[in-house]
Write a protein that binds this DNA or RNA. Structure first.
Lengths: 190, 190
DNA sequence: ACTATAGTGGCACCCGGTGCCAGAAAGCCA
DNA sequence: TGGCTTTCTGGCACCGGGTGCCACTATAGT
């Protein structure tokens, strides 16, 4: 019944967790891929089968998360206005259980402060923007590549990243609130 | 009168132009740093004194351009509203003489389509956002790191990048118009 | 036991990037 | 003219991320 072949010796999420620990302790540049592989108990070559790059390790499995957001948007009632729909799914998609907060903070601190990861993140955001642009295009009967859907996708990303920046800078900050507040600027305009 | 020491054997802009030619012809990944150095008639080691990375070569001297935008914003009349100020300098900063268009198109096509350059661009945009956030903070009497200035900086960046995306996709597109149109979404809200 | 399948890990190699150091071209001054 | 200082050049060795290739190991099914 089960698939044949050798079982994987670890998981993507475990590797990501181990790597984030190392990055946080020693620093990203000071942690080599060999260090991560050793800590995870696998060979360097094997590590690169779990993740295509050192940068990608810090993100973990973002694609799964992204599919969740797509599903959330698709399940929204068609009567809902664009601004409300985007704000609600932005908040829902980034909502955290209190237990998850510390781990998420450490991951996001790396992603938003380490230059190599800031840069790499741009490629992840592209997928995220695609989800938003697809939704906007569906609602307004445009193509996802058109100017308006693309602009709105960029704007919403901006709201998200600005909110995360504030959240990281203040230990007591409420991410939901920051996202809502940022969405309001977008909603009503400058 | 003139400074002592050996004269530089080339210039940053010349290297950037040569590299963009090669990237456009052969592709970014297929062009090695040694290829660029050879085409520029300098040693690989010397090339890395002109630019800190292969990615940076594609951007040329963005810092100079950025200082121009900062100056433009500083010269705006204080009576001007925020939305108008940002829109006008966005357009002014990205305005092109017809003669410059083809070269700029090739550069931007690389920056917005080659993954390594998309990623690296994020680091350039950080400086750009800083300029905007500083301006907004000055006008609204906040700190540049506060939520609103940061959000607006992200939003304006989104407008710019979405406009560039459209501009690149259509040979006849008018960048000024696209930027103005995008600013309007930001201005009036969703 | 035999075979098909999927994961592991070692090796060699490429390329981007850096530290180090010797040498080359310029100005300045005796 | 010959030295002195300054700045740029380029060669070399080295490091770390990433890949192609291949042999090996573990599992399931017959």
């Amino acid at each position: 019944m089960t698939t044949p072949g050798r079982r994987p010796s670890t998981t993507r999420s475990r590797i990501s967790a181990i790597a984030i620990d190392l990055f946080t302790e020693r620093g990203f540049d000071e942690t080599s891929v060999d260090d991560i592989a050793a800590a995870a108990g696998i060979a360097r070559r094997t590590l690169f089968r779990y993740y295509p790059s050192k940068n990608a390790i810090a993100w973990g499995d973002f694609d799964t998360h992204l599919a969740g957001m797509r599903g959330h948007l698709a399940g929204l009632p068609p009567t809902m206005g664009l601004a409300d729909a985007l704000r609600s799914s932005l908040v829902a998609f980034n909502h955290l259980d209190p237990a998850e907060v510390p781990a998420h903070r450490r991951r996001m601190a790396l992603l938003l402060t380490v230059p190599a990861l800031q840069a790499h993140s741009m490629l992840m955001y592209a997928g995220w923007r695609q989800v938003v642009a697809d939704y906007v295009a569906g609602v307004t009967d445009e193509r996802p590549g058109d100017h308006r859907p693309q602009t709105i996708a960029w704007l919403l990303l901006g709201v998200a990243l600005a909110a995360y920046g504030q959240w990281l800078a203040d230990d007591d900050a409420d991410l939901d609130h920051l996202l809502t507040q940022g969405s309001r600027i977008l909603d009503r305009g400058l």
